[in-house]
Simulated scan of single mutants.
Amino acid sequence: MTIHKEGYTTIALTVLFIFVLNAFIDYKFADLAWLRWFIYLFSLSLFLIVLQFFRNPSRSFTAGDKLIICPADGKVVVIEETEEPEYFKDKRLQVSIFMSPVNVHINRNPISGVVAFFKYHPGKYLAAWNPKSSTENERTTTVVTHSNGTPVLFRQIAGALARRIVWYIKEGDAVEQSKEFGFIKFGSRVDIFLPLGTKVNLELNQVVKGGITVLGELS
C-alpha cells in the first residue's frame, strides 16, 4: 500500500500541527503527565486517521469492455430512475455510492471511452446523503462515451467534511476503465447515471470497491 499524492500536503501539515501542539504541551504543562499522555494519544490517533484516509492500496482491477465498474469505494445508497437535469435532461437510472471518511477516496473511470462533457460546479457542503447534494454541493459532472456510442455520466459530489474535489480529466480525453479520474478529500459521494434498462448487479446498502466491483453491464 502507498500514500496517494493528494495526501502529501495534508499529511505534512498534520505532522507540523502535531509537532507544534506537543512542543507547546511539553513546555507549558510539563508537570501534568496525564495531559501530556492524552495529547500524545490524540496526536497518534489524528496522524493515523489522516494517513489511512489517503491510502492507495494495491489492487487487481476488474476489466471488461461491456462492464460498468464501480467508480468508488463505499456503500450503495441509491438505485432509482430519476431525471438527470444537467446533460441528458431526461430519465436515467441513477446509482449513488456514499464514501465515508474511512473509505479509499480515489475515483476511477467506470468505463473506457472519450470524455464528451466535463464541468466543475462550486457549491454548498451539505451532507453527502442529502438528496439536494446532487444539485447544490460542490461537484463535477463527467460524461464518457463508450466505443459503442453509449454515454455514461458520473458526478463527484463533495460532502459536509470535503472541501476540495480533484479531477485529472478534460473534454476530449480518451480514458481507460478503472484508471483514476479524480479524488475527493474526506466524506463524499459519487453518482452515476445510466441508460434506462441497464442491467445493474448491485443492491441497496451493498459495500463496493472502486475498480473491482461490477456495477452493471452496457447493452
Rank of each mutant, 00 (worst) to 15 (best):
Y8S: 10
V95T: 05
P57S: 06
E176R: 00
F183G: 08
R189L: 08
P57A: 05
E6G: 06
F88Q: 11
G211V: 07
L44P: 13
M1H: 06
R36G: 14
K66F: 14
V144Q: 11
V143L: 01
H146P: 04
F154M: 03
D26I: 11
A33N: 07
H4S: 15
R36N: 15
F181W: 02
E203G: 14
E86H: 09
D31L: 06
E138V: 06
N201R: 04
F61V: 11
K5C: 08
D65W: 00
N109M: 06
T14I: 10
T145Y: 00
F186V: 02
H4K: 05
W129N: 15
N130S: 13
L35D: 12
D73I: 02
Y168W: 00
R164W: 00
N109C: 10
R164D: 07
R139S: 12
N22I: 05
A174N: 12
I192N: 05
Y40F: 11
K119C: 03
I69S: 12
N109Q: 07
F154N: 04
K66P: 10
P131E: 13
K91L: 05
V104L: 01
A12P: 03
F117A: 01
K199N: 13
V95E: 05
S100I: 00
D65H: 12
T198E: 08
E171C: 04
G172L: 00
H121K: 00
L153R: 08
S43T: 05
N137R: 09
L46D: 13
F186M: 05
K75A: 10
V166A: 10
G187L: 00
E6I: 05
T142C: 03
R139H: 11
A72R: 08
E136K: 15
A72F: 06
A162P: 03
N107W: 01
